[in-house]
Design a protein around this nucleic acid. Structure first.
Lengths: 342, 342
DNA sequence: CCCAGCTTTCAAACCGCTTTGAATTTTGCC
DNA sequence: GGCAAAATTCAAAGCGGTTTGAAAGCTGGG
């Protein structure tokens, strides 16, 4: 059942039927009623492909995901996607995900943009000097970056959390508790978010004139074994850290495992502060959460990112939009004053 | 730059140019060369929307993801998607993800199918009596189920692992080690995979005439706190379990945390066997893996699922395809003989 | 040299919808 | 009742490709 058939059935022109269904004002109320009823009755729904070609809009938003051995598809991305997808489907948009080898990433953006496969992009995981931003500006297609990257951050739209300040406050918290030997287990510091967290850490330490020991700094893939191995190794140093500041719950779980293995009780013998993306499958709630954490829901970020991008696409010409969220600092069971004997 | 312009530029008809670029045989080799060169030089790439409308094929595969508070987007899904997406992009397909409230799930399938938004579907997480299979059969659109569900399993295509046998073998392993009080921390048993794992467990226990204690059976969302809470509670029973068989690495990490909290050493004081989906961010490898596990890569499943679906779509009319994978049983550090004192 | 039979190219129809510009019908007012 | 303006409806021209059926150009055997 297509538009032509339906209009013939109704004795109307395709024009009128199309307008009636799309809510245009210049159609008689009675006619519109008749049309919508007939459409429902005969199970008519417009062919998306035709609609897209005619309007030039795809109502699709693209997410290009580079797939490499190192930068793995991670659960953080999944939760972001869930949030964004929620907004898309209520706003009538579709989500297109293109998983490509890293060396084809640029080609993928270019192809989707020039072949009119999507109306806009959300860019994930910007690096400190991210070339994708310039590419998308050159392609002239709406986009929003989750995070900030590249040399300038004023001429494009982004949504980010204040990573620097979050880790600055977290470090201060540990310093206030008397800790001096604080280990930082960070994500890859080529990533913008990790670099900013590092800055926050360094700044807080410098302000209190506490030296940073390079032996306590690691920057790797944020998975559980990283936390475990790094903590295990650092805890067997001559002067082990009394506190760990880590960039993800997965790392924190690894640190926890290493601590428990040594019989150290978190909060008493060892402090752990983590960033918590509030992932749906890794809850850190409860009466008192397990970990003291800087928290910001990645899913909520996905939702908001989608909203902003849709606004950008529907109101082109307005300047870039930027939103910076502060993260919550919630106290859990994993922090306490520096143990006396140290 | 569109087809008409390019053809005018070349002094050819759009027909010929189209054929030249799409590799049809009835075009002169010299002409084809000239056309492809010109296309490259002028940066011509066909408008996808037009192409889709003309051919009726979208080259898009849909994944409908119900989003509810209970059934969360989980990292398992993310890894599957990564595998599938990899195959899609090398085969020229796009991946469309539709995140919808659970009550709109059927409508979403129907809409994507009838509006010709996608050429096929991959169905995730089938339940024991899954209505989506009948729906998709009625809609007459190609699809492949990851897992098996519904009353019959012979008249549609699926890719699954042998969950029943995997857990049967895992249970036998624990029984061979002398364990009698074995706890099962499973996923929701409305899900097909969890029901089958339960069957495997029950069968193995029954074959050895070992009674199953209902107090040691739990079936919930597979997240870390579930493993922690359940293990913590069970370990404080009068007759605590000496072994845990669990359905995901996340649960296993929770059990591990509860065990360590009590000072129990896994492998010596307590045995843990888990199913391991081989998630990229939760590796269980190493010289000796942390957990003894039934392992099957979910990412590899995603890849294969995509391959099979594409075969189905390109060769319609052939019967349903089904593939059942056995999982590996790898011995890690988390299992050992039943402690003497119990 | 002619013509059958290939090879190559082309004009036009089509995919199913939107939208422009014109035509038709209604309405409101004198 | 007549007429201009407003409200509806319509025919036709896109959107940018693919594909059908016919035409034009080549080849080679008689």
């Amino acid at each position: 059942m297509n538009l032509k058939e339906l209009s013939k059935l109704l004795g109307l022109s395709p024009t009128t039927v199309s307008r009636a269904l799309n809510g245009y004002p210049e159609v008689n109320a009675a006619t519109r009623m008749r049309v919508t009823e007939a459409a429902l009755k005969h199970g008519y729904s417009p062919n998306l492909l035709a609609k897209r070609l005619a309007t030039g809009r795809t109502l699709t938003i693209g997410h290009v995901v580079p797939l490499s051995v190192h930068q793995m598809i991670n659960p953080i991305f999944a939760d972001f996607i869930a949030g964004a997808g929620e907004v898309y489907s209520t706003s009538g948009y579709d989500m297109l995900i293109s998983v490509v080898p890293p060396e084809q990433e640029h080609a993928a953006y270019r192809k989707l943009a020039t072949q009119r496969g999507v109306d806009g992009f959300i860019v994930h995981g910007p690096t400190v000097t991210d070339p994708r931003i310039a590419l998308l500006q050159e392609l002239g297609i709406p986009f929003l970056v989750h995070g900030r990257g590249g040399p300038s951050e004023s001429n494009y739209s982004w949504l980010d959390i204040n990573n620097r300040r979050g880790f600055l406050r977290a470090t201060e918290l540990l310093l206030d508790l008397g800790h001096r030997r604080i280990a930082l287990l960070n994500g890859h510091e080529t990533m913008s978010f990790a670099a900013r967290r590092r800055q926050g850490f360094d700044t807080a330490m410098a302000e209190r004139n506490v030296p940073v020991d390079p032996a306590l700094l690691r920057s790797e893939e944020m998975i559980e074994p990283f936390g475990f191995e790094a903590a295990r190794q650092m805890l067997s140093l001559d002067r082990p850290p009394t506190a760990f500041l880590v960039s993800s719950m997965m790392i924190a779980l690894g640190v926890l495992r290493a601590a428990q293995e040594r019989g150290l009780e978190p909060g008493r013998d060892l402090s752990i502060v983590t960033h918590d993306d509030d992932l749906s499958f890794l809850p850190n709630h409860g009466a008192i959460p397990l970990f003291t954490a800087t928290r910001s829901s990645i899913r909520e970020a996905g939702r908001r990112a989608a909203e902003i991008l849709i606004e950008i696409m529907t109101h082109p010409g307005t300047g870039p939009r930027q939103e910076l969220w502060e993260s919550d600092l919630t106290i859990g069971l994993s922090t306490g004053p520096r143990p006396k004997e140290t």
